[in-house]
Amino acid sequence: MTWEPAVTCTAVSKTFYEKDETLAYLPEYRGLAGRWRYARLRPRAVRAVDGVSFEVRRGEIYGVLGPNGSGKSTLIRLLSTLLEPDAGEMSVFGLDVVRDRLAVRQLINRVSVEAAFFKKLSALENLRYAARLYGLAPREGTEKALDILERLGLERRKAFVSVENLSRGMQQKVAVARALFTSPVLLLLDEPTTGLDPRSKREVQDFVLEVRAFHDTTVLLTSHDMAEADRLCDRVAFIDEGRLRAEGRPSELKERYGPNGAGTLEDVFLEVTGRRWPGEEDED
């Protein structure tokens, strides 16, 4: 493993402004009609990512752990050039995420929590589209994707039915295959196993390990599954309310923060945030 940085993130912040509809019904706004009340509301600022700095080394599997709403997906979106940071710098293999957007896009791919497919089209049709976008010959590209799908335990014939008729686990496998067949140097996985049955979860996890073992791919993954992070990640970072609270190798963190130098990653979370790990929760 070389120590060349794959991702550097320096003091990155992102704030969203949201209007909260329910506030329109506060007494202060009485007397105004609904839409006008809404128009009078000041947007509420949500600091989704707040001064986050970290570095991912080439070839590493780096995990970002945090409860729902802690800013994990925002961080991934910033890295995948879908959002522009308000402040701070982010680069992927030395390329600036804002200035060299197109070049960064060639290096990365992302698997999001929700499977982003044309649901009426088959997996194969979706993969053909993806192949063309990423400059692969469609035939060769889809062959490669089908091989990956087979590796992930998806029957070949399932690739020919509409994606909407596939289970969530199968859809997620197609999403993983779609991200991988473009040979990204940086793979961004946003809660890739959330909502999967234990077996599919295991299969996807095994595959992530396999990818790292056999290809020159760096993986940045988010999760709120501590066991998964422990199993997959070389290093993890805890994020809570947009802030990075602790970072290190899972064993190191457990030693440093766990009771009597032992314990679990849940204990680490409690120690660094002062809050109990919320555990498995429903995805929003």
Partner: peptide, 14 residues
Amino acid sequence: WEGTIEYTFMAPIH
């Protein structure tokens, strides 16, 4: 509406 917007917009094309 399909939910593919992010996928399409992050593709490495002009």
